[in-house]
Design a protein around this nucleic acid. Sequence first.
DNA 1: GCGCGTAAGCTAACATCTGTAAATCGAAAG
DNA 2: CTTTCGATTTACAGATGTTAGCTTACGCGC
Lengths: 198, 198
Amino acid sequence: MTESVRPRNRRGEGARLRAEIVDAATALIDESGGDALTLRAVARRAGISAPSIYAHFDDLGAVADAVLARGFDELTAAITDATSAAEDPVDRVIAIGLAYVRFSRANPARYRFMFASDGYSPDAVRAYEVLRQAIADCVEAGRSSSEDPHLDTWMVWAALHGAATLEKPGRPELLRLGALDRPRLLADMIRRLARIAP
Amino acid sequence: MTESVRPRNRRGEGARLRAEIVDAATALIDESGGDALTLRAVARRAGISAPSIYAHFDDLGAVADAVLARGFDELTAAITDATSAAEDPVDRVIAIGLAYVRFSRANPARYRFMFASDGYSPDAVRAYEVLRQAIADCVEAGRSSSEDPHLDTWMVWAALHGAATLEKPGRPELLRLGALDRPRLLADMIRRLARIAP
DNA sequence: GCGCGTAAGCTAACATCTGTAAATCGAAAG
DNA sequence: CTTTCGATTTACAGATGTTAGCTTACGCGC
């Protein structure tokens, strides 16, 4: 159960443990959810002693914040990647939405943890701004009949967040959507909210 | 901090404590979130000793389940109330959606707790079925151009759930939607997803 | 090659909380 | 007065965040 003995970092490389702690905390949340995030569990997982964490973080909350920050960074990266991969503005909006839900499905526990934290990080808003721009581009290109991209972005965001949250790690799906073309379902949902004609 | 001494129940009325325990647990979650739900906190809040809970519940999980069950009952009740209050099928769908989000905004912490539990209770599906029927009614009345009410219901549900979850108890709103006509925003969102013409 | 400062991390201990088991008390009902 | 329900006190074994103090080994200056 315990990790094998961890070799001590070289001199000057002490900061490397910081990243390892965040790794451990992230893995912990991914595997067992936010409740499993305890200082001692993180330490066990990282192969260090609990007090060693205090050299790099003020307290457990600071570790959690670091996990959050990394999560939002990953989410933002996934979304910006999707953005730059598509040329057509409509494709771009769809790609963003799919990337969003894909992230949440790939990291369900962490996603929940991220959005269960008090007050979303400003990083969340960064991703939101990307979506907003993409929808505005659709309007400018005459592909969306949206009259208020701000509001419509909110709707799309809410719907994506709902789709992301509704599907749990646990198998028993709320609705029988198993045999369904999920990307198409999400794409339809986005198009309707962003007022993009099929 | 401790509640005043609770008078012991009469003989044969022992089951009344069960309800008081659920009351206490519910209040606890409403005020401080799911993490605050500990056996001892519930006992303090109910004005009893911790082991007294075992007379009515197998363990802490059973208490949590009872809170969940009550929550889903309340949600279902709010939704069926909204359903029967509206004559017009379109009004009905909108009313259901507004009732849903209203519930989540009235009980944010409990709502989160409910949907953070592993595997939604079948009660959630009951409420879903009401929405599905309402949308099907719109189609039958020629008010919705939905081609697959099942899928569209899923979309509406997801969007409502997202709208419900996106707004946190903590003040810092993700998006500046303060001065906005929220019911109208939600109604628009629902109409678009359920393919109901304005 | 050799100290030796210091970075990197450890062990021990604390106060407090947790869920739960066992045994017990007290008052109301018959 | 006795039974029995409704609850209590006590105790446990383990977990948690955090503090204080100690150890070890790396790498620079000599």
